[in-house]
Design a protein around this nucleic acid. Sequence first.
DNA 1: CTCCCGCAGGTTTTT
DNA 2: CCTGCGGGAG
Length: 817
Amino acid sequence: MQTTNFQPQPVTRQQLLDKLNTQQQDAVSLGWGPALVVAGAGSGKTTVLTRRVAWLLSELRQPPYSVMAVTFTNKAAAQMKSRVESLLGEGVAKRLTIGTFHSICARILRREISAYESAEGFKWKSNFVIYDETDTLNVVKGVVSKLNLDEKVFAPKEMRHSISALKNDGLNAHQYSQEARNYRDQRLSEIFTNYQSELARNNALDFDDLIALFNDLMEQNEEVRRRVHDQYRHLLVDEFQDTNKAQYRFIRLLSFDENPQDEGMRRQRWENRSLMVVGDVDQSIYSWRKADFRIILGFQNDFKEAAVVKLEENYRSTATILQVANSIIINNSERLEKTLRCNRGEGGKVRCYGASDEIDEAFFVVDELKRLGARSLRLSDCCILYRTNAQSRAIEEVLVRSGIPYVMVGGTRFYDRAEIKDVIAYMKLVYNPDDGIGFQRVVNNPRRGLGKTTLERVAEYAAQNNLSQIDAASQATAISDVSPKAAKTLIDFANSVRRWQTMSGVMSVAALLELVLRESTYLAALEKDAAESKDEVVLGRIDNVRELVVVAQEFEQSADEPTLESFLTRISLVSDLDSADMNQDSIKLMTLHSAKGLEFPTVFMLGLEEGLFPHIRSLNSPSALEEERRLMYVGVTRAEDRLYLTYSRRRSTYGETSYTIPSRFLSEINGEYLQGFQADPESAFRAESGSKSYASGGSYAPPQERGRPARSGYEEYSEERHGRLGGGKNDVLQQKPKPRVLSRRPGGEGAEEQSSVKPVANFQRLCVGDNVMHAKFGVGKVSQVIGEGDKELYNVEFQTAGKRLLDPRFAKLVKLD
DNA sequence: CTCCCGCAGGTTTTT
DNA sequence: CCTGCGGGAG
């Protein structure tokens, strides 16, 4: 819209408010203090955020370095940067802090981490490395075996997941150790503490630590707090509905030191400071990462002086698409009513296609693309969305065969490939020689004749003497039971790493990478393999490694700071998602989660089948199911003009074929907006039954009300439809009970994943219709229960004070009878 | 110590 | 289906 590129002058007030509606203008032109912007899908929140940043700089005269904007993906950050750039010029945009929680915290920790010390005395150095999923899993495995715990009972993956959940809930190892009550939790606590100790010894952090340690550091160190506080005076947070407790703590820590009770002090505190959070409860889709939409619901309670702006005008989609979105989301009970006003014409009906299998489904998409292409639709205006990454295979195959260019966003990441991880591990080790996981990964890769036992001895020796593994390797002759030959290899290796480390001070990243590839003989070994086996896979690996060199070269050209440090941080935190070129003339493929925040004229949503979308893992939890529905809502509202929904009657998973039935979400759509799908009137999946459990497996299910047979609606329907067709083994139903068994813990009654982790909140549980008494609001009636378990919230209609959303853990509600 | 084979187990979504 | 791992042979 604006063509003020590189214009040195600040934009005018009028330009910043140009073409905005009243609410948008209100949001952009707010003064100091906290603000909540409730922004429905397609309501122009990115525009509001970027103009708000510009407003802070040009109207409120704030220096660029004082502004921090947090987004959920690096891509969103890049997008915001470039939009601010086009408003204010490149020079200004560069001095803003725009990024994800993780990348911003990483940047600050690089500077400040040496001031940190955990309650247990764990410390880190500024050249820490960031461990990914595999690295951390290896650490947990090591800890579990060191503690002599049974891997069956304390499955490393589960432990790793629990630790992550704890960190995201804002608990560190020390705090959790005070809380762990039963046997299992105490062992978990032990694992947690040892895990942190191992990370510290390796001078490594995991993803969650980036935020958690930053928070702890801010709390424990006044100097750091002051420095951060003095610099960042304006915080903007996008996708606020998806923040978790740790991230919220970050936001609060940045916004104020403590919470003064006095009104005047509070006003003073916000002088020259601001906080703007932007979100939409209906688009909360990351609860599995411990995002908690109660945070956005409770924001006004935490920040009583917060201004609230609602953006309810949708500029993106046709009326029909919005109706479809609405007819789906109204089936959720965990939400606050909201109306999105449409700003566009009616548009065509949403089209549904029932395919016979996933190949047929893919061909339908391709045929439609061709048809639309004939009407001069650009490929880059189209997007294919699916629930799981695995679904991309079929569609990719057909696209390739049809010669249609596509870009897959996300999926198997380039940086996840074994050879890339090897090479990165070398570089990380050069940057941070304490990195023991990296050491173990590369010390015998390529083969240097070091065996399992030798490497175990090294790790043991290092642990016993509190050394890094590379230092242990240097002293290999002192380790008992290591052969002289192996010792020499170890010493040579350690010396090489040290030499590369010295070189890293005087070489560019790409040059260093090439040096390491050469001297480690990693590349030579790959080439030898390839020459011997003529294996295409190995050839591909060589290409990938070469590609990484190109990535490093490009990085040197484009980065502000082309250091090894920023290269490694970037690689650890950036996914393919962020680098995908969205402008290329090719169709985009991505998961629904990756599509958040994007929009496309034409959208295809694939795999609308029970068990896939909604996903099978969500079928036995009402609130998980509602998250699936929000995901559906997000998908539908990505579309501007044209939307296709497809399902397939047959689908192969694991190489086995199963028969499926159309997603309940299709049945929820008002038929007048949908073409090509007839909701079965006998279907068990209409809105009413939506919250019932369909996963009560096998024939053990208790008899249901209304004279249903002793089988769930899911089975009943499926069998009626496919029982005779697919028959026995391959039927979805047969596989159903399996995941339930797996999720059950020995001795644990909790079917819910993290039930043993969380402290259980104590409060009076209420149901819809209960009459209650509140000290301030008087007598009222519960009109809605939001959330479940210890996360319950109550919407209470008071006789005098109107409707209020209350958190029973804070609000004193007395039940009347 | 390395290589190779067979088997089990796991796939939701991502920073 | 595809990966990672353990066990056994060379």
